[in-house]
Write a protein that binds this DNA or RNA. Structure first.
Lengths: 205, 205
DNA sequence: CCTGCCATCCCACAAAAACGGGATATTTGA
DNA sequence: TCAAATATCCCGTTTTTGTGGGATGGCAGG
């Protein structure tokens, strides 16, 4: 039986490209596509594919959130993340949210087809490139910060001082200061300037 | 006579998508593609297309540099920039380097075809979306900073203090402080944290 | 030639961040 | 259930930033 495939991506060119790449694959049945999270969810309420190829950066709800939502509602669907860049944190979040695989948009047709077939069997698929990024990641990569720390970080990046943040979050300045210290330690940064640079580059704010 | 088209993009899926979108366009002749700047330049040394579709983010030499190089060597070729996001500064730089147009990867097939036909006539093509970004840009967008300010900004973002920067650049701390003040004014930021965030997001560091 | 813009330097004060400790409740996961 | 992680708070000191002035020589374009 053919693997029924659905794709969510806001770039028509990519959809068309994948469609055309898979035209000759008899084992993969093209079910259709959606350009955003909402129309994807709408589609799924009437029909269920085996595998969804999902872009992670989309207007509105991101692929990361969409992945979570879809897996909650339809746990049987296998999801493959799709993106242009190998942004460590995105890949990690996608996998955390239940994705079964991840391929980059510069993957070869063979890789893509292999990914689809692999996840359809319930296995995980990670291209060598992506896998090595994840490995590096766990080695020394992205700082793991708590919810609260992220809140504080966001406010710092918005230009607020410790006392302003304290006011906003209804906590004392000392607490904010502690969070700030912990952030500096986790990012191994010597001051907020370099910390913010890193955080923005890692797409954490 | 058909418009001879060449495409440079490191994402095979996008190349395939565009190829497939243009299959039925008799007025556009598909010449081939390259996955990076070097093979593009190699190709051009033997054959010259009328229009080149060029991704701006590529490994190695970026589309922005490639655009400049190609226009210097082959001024008769029209170049259309291609990217996923409408990053203000990228679009601007691409146009500054001699591109004749710019389309986003989520453009419709019609937009893409119109863009190719328009630039082939020697005109400029900017999609509404892109044009509005450029307009906003000139209105209030990106701060214009001097060479020296950019140097200082980079070092600040790397976590150096004023006195460290002064040492590095062989100038006095006062001077560094003045540059810092000017940067804060130009970015309309109240402190370095929010300034760095903005600068990284605008791809200025 | 002269008007901006740039890069350079100076002073002084207030505000904030960085650094180095320590402490205690609560939540959470193994 | 018990240890680890999280969130909360406090002290004091030094360093760095932020703010608000002012000043000078150089250089390029109108």
């Amino acid at each position: 039986m053919a693997i029924r495939l659905f794709i969510v991506d806001d770039h028509y060119m990519v959809i068309e490209g994948i469609h055309s790449l898979l035209l000759n694959e008899k084992e993969i049945e093209w079910m259709g596509h959606a350009g955003n999270a909402d129309s994807c969810l709408a589609y799924l309420s009437s029909q269920l594919p085996d595998v969804i190829l999902m872009d992670i950066s989309m207007p509105g709800m991101s692929g990361i959130e969409l992945c979570k939502t879809v897996k909650e509602k339809y746990p049987s669907v296998y999801i493959i993340g799709l993106s242009t860049f190998n942004q460590q944190s995105f890949i990690q979040k996608m996998m955390d949210n239940g994705a079964s695989g991840y391929v980059l948009k510069n993957a070869t047709p063979e890789e893509l087809i292999e990914a689809i077939k692999t996840v359809a069997l319930g296995k995980l698929y990670l291209s060598d490139e992506v896998a090595s990024v994840l490995r590096k990641n766990s080695d020394l990569g992205i700082p793991v910060i708590t919810r609260r720390e992220k809140e504080v970080l966001t406010l710092i990046a918005d230009g607020m001082t410790n006392s302003e943040i304290a006011g906003r979050l209804f906590i004392s300045v000392s607490t904010v200061d502690t969070h700030r210290k912990n952030l500096l330690a986790k990012f191994e940064s010597k001051n907020i300037a370099s910390l913010i640079k890193t955080a923005v580059q890692l797409n954490m704010i």
